[in-house]
Structures are given as structure tokens and as C-alpha cells.
């Protein structure tokens, strides 16, 4: 199962240093300092906010299954450790790639826009004036209407242009034929209703969740390669997250760029110093040009990297004991950079 492999991959990357819950928060895309820092420290960008609607019940079911299969052991505090069997299974890898960090569920907005536009164009070619829109969200409906007007759909040429763009871009994409089919089979048109997840999964002999994951993977790949296709790029507008920060971290970033010190930012924003530190770590993680040398020098960075290797851990507590002259804040900055 693909989902199983993803979950094992996350546990492998978290290196037995976090609770099982942190994997859950990661998949749901919890916007907390801890989760976001974990993304950087353990290189988990692919999975942040991959499944915003995942239920705890379902997640726990899989963890339970792992325990039963002897893939991992749990302790009372919620920490886990992968067994050699679990590690072996995890190393079999995940059969598709994701870029959740930059889309965070927005890939679904792209598809909702696209499917409504396609449905409308289908009815236009069949000369049917009214239909029940496949998307109920008024924001999506507004977008689709504006798109059609902007590109003079009345001329009747948009169908062919969009057909070419979709066909060409999908053919050039490094995804499987099954994934291309998933994308097109979820579209709906006159006399050609879309297929349900139950149907698609049944045809492929997969679990519904796995078909959905392959579909999301295909969407991430597609979105990453459509900038040269003007109509598709227009449909995808403003969905890629270029500065993926929490709002509060964004405010801190602005003040930092104006040259305020950590203490000044804390007092001006009426925040605890530790909170501002969280923000700066988040910044460092997202922006490789962030000047961490304000806080840690080159020599100290080298020391941290060596310690991570020799102790085979990214646990702050262990690193702090090995490098007592560095603060937790400095260690986290160093790790954030290491993650990129």
C-alpha cells in the first residue's frame, strides 16, 4: 500500500526522535512551530499537508497495524522506534513523488477550477445552455466564469486549445499512464460522467486511498510543469505557495528585514523571545539566503554538522550536551540550514 510506505518513510526520516503524533500533524499540515521545524530538520517537505482531512482514527489504525506487523514498537509517552523489519520495509520506498510543501491542498483547488471549466466547455460544444455545476463552491464558480470570459469562450476555440495543452503537458510529464488516466477520469462532461474513487480503485485493484494519493502526486507533478502552458498556468494562478510562512512569522520577517534585533522584535510585537526565535528558525528553513551567521558562525556550523553525524541524531538535547557552548536557538538554526 502506498499510504503505508509514505507513513513508514516519515517514521524513518523522523529517526525515532519524535512521537507518532508528529507524523499525523505533518500529514494534516498543522501550522505550529514544532511541525514546521520538523519539516526542515528531517527533510519532510514532500508530505507537509498531504492529507489535510486525514482522521486520527484512520491514522491510528495504520500505526496499530504497523505494531501488529512488527514494523515498530511504541512506548507509553507516544514515542516509537522502527524495528529492523520496519526499516527494511520503509527502504522499499514510495512509488510516487509529492511536493506538498508548495501546494498544501491547493492542488485540489486547481482541479476544481479545471473540472468546472472543462464541464462548461463540454456543454458549450454540445450546445447545451444549462447544467448542474460539478463544483458547488461559489469561489470556484466565480473563477471559472471569469476564466471563460477572459479567454473569449464564445469564439468556440478554447476547447481545442485547452485539449492541446492538457494532452501535451500530460504526455511530457514523468508520471505513469495510470496517473494520467486518473486525472482525466475524474473529469466530467456531457454524457461522460466522471468515475468515483470506488470505481477507479476497483479497476486498478487498489485501495481508494492509494488511488487518491497517486492522483495527488500526479497533480503536484503537473502543477510543477505547467508554466509554459498559458491556459493551464492561468488556471493554476496563485496556488503555489512561494513564501510558506505562518502569518505571525511573516510579520517577524518584515521587522527583521528592517534591521530590528531579536529583542527589539519581541518587545515591539509583544511576544516572548522564544516565539520570535521560532519565527527566525522558520525563516531560515524557508530561505537559504537568510543570514544565520548573525547568530551562529561558520565554525559552530561545522561543529553541529559533525555532532549530528557522530551521534547519528538530530535530538536537540543530545546535541546540546555535546556542544554546551551553543544555545538551543543556535542549534535549531544550524539544523534548519542543514535540512536544505
Amino acid at each position: 500500500m502506498i499510504f503505508q510506505q509514505i507513513l513508514l518513510d516519515i517514521f524513518l526520516k523522523l529517526n525515532n526522535e519524535r512521537t507518532v503524533s508528529s507524523a499525523y500533524h505533518l500529514l494534516r499540515g498543522k501550522r505550529s512551530g514544532q511541525t514546521i521545524q520538523d519539516v526542515g530538520i528531517f527533510s519532510l517537505h514532500a508530505y507537509f499537508s498531504l492529507l489535510p482531512k486525514l482522521t486520527r482514527q484512520k491514522f491510528d489504525g495504520f500505526v496499530q497495524l504497523f505494531a501488529e506487523n512488527g514494523y515498530l514498537q511504541m512506548d507509553d509517552a507516544g514515542y516509537y522506534s522502527l524495528t529492523s523489519r520496519g526499516i527494511e520495509q520503509a527502504r522499499k520506498g514510495v512509488p510516487c513523488t509529492f511536493d506538498s510543501w508548495h501546494y498544501r491542498g491547493n492542488e485540489h483547488i486547481f482541479y476544481e477550477r479545471l473540472s468546472l471549466i472543462v464541464q462548461a466547455l463540454s456543454h458549450q460544444s454540445a450546445n447545451i445552455k444549462a447544467f448542474i455545476p460539478i463544483q458547488r463552491d461559489e469561489g470556484i464558480q466565480y473563477f471559472a466564469r471569469q476564466f471563460l470570459l477572459r479567454h473569449q469562450y464564445q469564439s468556440g476555440a478554447l476547447q481545442v486549445l485547452l485539449l492541446q495543452e492538457i494532452t501535451n503537458s500530460l504526455e511530457a510529464l514523468a508520471v505513469t499512464e495510470e496517473q494520467r488516466e486518473l486525472l482525466i477520469n475524474r473529469l466530467t462532461g456531457v454524457d461522460l460522467p466522471g468515475f468515483t474513487w470506488q470505481q477507479l480503485a476497483y479497476q486498478a485493484g487498489r485501495a481508494e486511498m492509494d488511488s487518491q494519493l497517486l492522483y495527488i502526486s500526479a497533480l503536484h507533478n503537473w502543477l510543477g510543469h505547467i508554466e509554459h502552458y498559458p491556459y493551464l498556468a492561468d488556471i493554476a494562478q496563485q496556488l503555489r505557495i512561494s513564501m510558506p510562512l505562518t502569518d505571525s512569522a511573516y510579520q517577524t520577517a518584515k521587522l527583521f528585514q528592517q534591521g530590528l534585533s531579536l529583542q527589539q522584535i519581541a518587545s515591539k510585537r509583544n511576544l516572548k523571545q522564544s516565539t520570535v526565535e521560532d519565527h527566525l528558525v522558520e525563516l531560515a528553513m524557508n530561505d537559504i539566503t537568510f543570514p544565520i551567521e548573525h547568530f551562529v558562525n561558520q565554525e559552530e556550523l561545522v561543529q553541529v554538522n559533525k555532532a549530528v553525524l557522530s551521534y547519528a541524531t538530530k535530538k536537540l538535547k543530545v546535541l546540546r550536551e555535546a556542544l554546551p557552548h551553543l544555545s538551543y536557538f543556535q542549534l535549531r538554526l544550524a539544523l534548519a540550514r542543514g535540512g536544505n
Binding site: 472543462v118 463540454s122 460544444s125 454540445a126 450546445n127 485547452l162 494532452t167 494520467r180 473529469l187 456531457v190
Partner: peptide
């Protein structure tokens, strides 16, 4: 095929 399906959806008049 997915290409045929897409074509039928978009160009249903043809």
C-alpha cells in the same frame, strides 16, 4: 484512452 476521453468531453459536438 485518456486522450480519447478528454477529446470526447471537450469536443462533444464532433
Amino acid at each position: 484512452t485518456w486522450q480519447e476521453r478528454l477529446q470526447r468531453i471537450l469536443l462533444s459536438s464532433l
